[in-house]
Structure formats: C-alpha cells, structure tokens
Design a protein around this nucleic acid. Structure first.
Length: 294
DNA sequence: TCAGACCCTCACAG
DNA sequence: ACTGTGAGGGTCT
C-alpha cells in the first residue's frame, strides 16, 4: 500500500530543534515545513500536534527509512532519566525539550563534518549545498518545485579535482575531502565495517582519514553509527564544560576526557547535544534582542 | 602541551 | 558604499 504522505504519531519530538541543531546540514525551513533529502528521498516534514507529517514527491511502499533517520523509536524519557541530575544539564533539557539525535548515513556524515572545521553552521550548510548541487544526482521533487540533489558519493568525489572542490568554498578542507573520498573508493577503509566494531575500534578507523581528528570522529560515531556514548567536544561544549563543571581552573585534556566518558553516563552523546544546543541558544539571545529592539 | 597555518565568508566597526 | 578586522561544531605539524 503505497502512499506519498504519512503521519508518524510521536510526541516529545521537537522537529525544528533537531533538524537545525547542527547534526545535519541539508534541511531548509519553508512554508511551515522542513524540506530535505534522505538518501535518494526528497521529503517535506512538518510538526503536528500528534506527531510528524511527512510528504513525498511520489508514493513509497514504506517509511522505515524515515523513522530510522529520525530515530522516532528512541524512548527520550528513558534517555533523560539516565542523565546525571545536575543543575546545568537539567536546565538544558528544560530549554531544549524534544531535541533528538538523528541517524545519518555514515559517508554523508563523515564528509559533512570534514567540511565543518572552523566553520559556522550556516557556512557548512552553504558548502554542503554547493557540493550536492554540483556533484549530486537530482531526485524527484513535486511539480514546479526547485531541484534537490543526493549527497554525492565517495566514488564521484574521488574523481573530481581539488580546484573543483575549492569552488564549493570549502577552502583548506578540499584536499581532506578528496583524499578521504579516494581512500574509501579504493577500499582502504570500509565504512560499513565500522558497524561491526566497538566504539574505540571504530574511532581509530575514522582517525585514519585526513582532516578527521577526535572531535569529528566522535560526531560521526554519534550521528551516523549510533554510539550514544560518543561525546564530541567542540568550542561550545568546551565552554559549557569549563563554565558549568570546572569553574575554578581549567582541566587538563586527559582529565576532561575522563570526565566526559564517565560522568554523563551511557547516553553522554545526548547530553552533549543538549549542552551544545543550550549554549548556542544562550549565546544567541543578546544578539537577537538587540536586532529586534531597533 | 602549544602555537601557527590553513581557505574563505560573513558580520560588524569605522 | 568602502575597507579593515575577527572569528567560525578543527586538524596537523
């Protein structure tokens, strides 16, 4: 029974916060709904009182690809219960109610985060968009709608030149993405195989790629491979950790790693996302109140 | 451990 | 309008 529309009954899911929280970079909000591409599926998602409404350009037999991406079967209440009961995290959870983690394609996630280093989220979105437009394949969209593209495969990108990548405004990240594409195409690293490894082994495999350090490796482990204990530490989370948990003196890298891998529990990755989102929102408040008071 | 380099773009002063 | 400056979900040497 195919349909081009479905409602996923679900509560405790803030679609907007989740899609715009810097996990994925290809969602755009338009006319009250989020439009994007998952794999080869164009889809439009909107938040409804009793769940998420999904709309496709063409009928599809099933929606498992979508529920898997959105991770709607994760019991958020259980995740939140496993958090340490401290004040900063509690406040973050309160402010970001319904924030979720997505489950993305490993290659798209890896490539996107290679492009993320020292970039603002808006800029990452620009670069990724440019990359897809130039090297992705068009996907079916509703009549008269602007075109959408797949995320280009590693095989495709392995054949382009560094100059072509730089034309997507990715700067010094171009050689890293190119080399990574080539390594994967050559079979030097098998991204699917990482699913069968433990978190430390998978982490080490990811570090073999140029442009992938500790932070980006953890992002890919968390957002694509579902290692919920992975804890990416970027400038925002670092600020949160220093301000909220180490106000006296700044901890050594070793001490910090020890803390993040034990204190937050089995769902540390979720805790990280809440702290990240909270810090970003908080940092943004003064700017928006200034601009709106003119 | 610790700078400095690395590309490029945008926001924000002046 | 124009130019100058700083910094942005890091990584590598």
């Amino acid at each position: 029974m195919s349909s081009s529309q479905a409602i996923i009954a679900f509560q405790d899911y803030d679609l907007g916060s989740t899609l715009a929280s810097g996990q994925a970079f290809r969602w755009t909000f338009r006319d009250g709904a989020w439009e994007g591409v998952i794999g080869t599926h164009w889809v439009r998602l909107s938040q409804k009182p009793h769940g998420i409404e999904a709309e496709r350009a063409q009928p599809v037999p099933e929606w498992q690809w979508l529920t898997h991406y959105l991770q709607t079967d994760v019991n958020l209440a259980e995740v939140l219960r496993a958090f340490p009961q401290d004040e900063p995290l509690g406040r973050s959870v309160q402010e970001c109610r319904g924030l979720r983690l997505l489950r993305q394609d490993p290659w798209e996630c890896l490539a996107s985060f290679i492009l993320s280093s020292t970039k603002q989220i808006v800029q990452i979105q620009q670069i990724v968009g440019e990359l897809c437009t130039r090297f992705g394949e068009p996907v079916p969209v509703p009549p008269g709608h602007k075109p959408f593209y797949t995320f280009p495969t590693a095989e495709r990108l392995a054949k382009v030149t560094e100059a072509e990548l730089r034309a997507c405004k990715m700067g010094f990240r171009a050689p890293s993405l190119l080399k990574t594409s080539q390594m994967i195409t050559a079979g030097e690293v098998d991204l699917q195989r990482l699913f069968s490894l433990n978190v430390d082994q998978a982490h080490n495999e990811l570090l073999r790629f140029r442009g992938v350090g500790n932070k980006i490796a953890n992002c890919v482990l968390l957002f694509a491979y579902g290692f919920q204990q992975a804890f990416p530490v970027d400038v925002w989370v670092m600020k949160a950790l220093k301000d909220l948990y180490f106000p006296q003196r700044r901890p050594s890298a070793k001490r910090l790693a020890r803390f993040t891998s034990t204190y937050f529990g089995p769902y540390a990755g979720y805790a990280q996302q809440y702290l990240f989102h909270y810090m970003r929102m908080k940092g943004r408040l003064p700017a928006s109140s200034v601009s709106s008071s003119s």
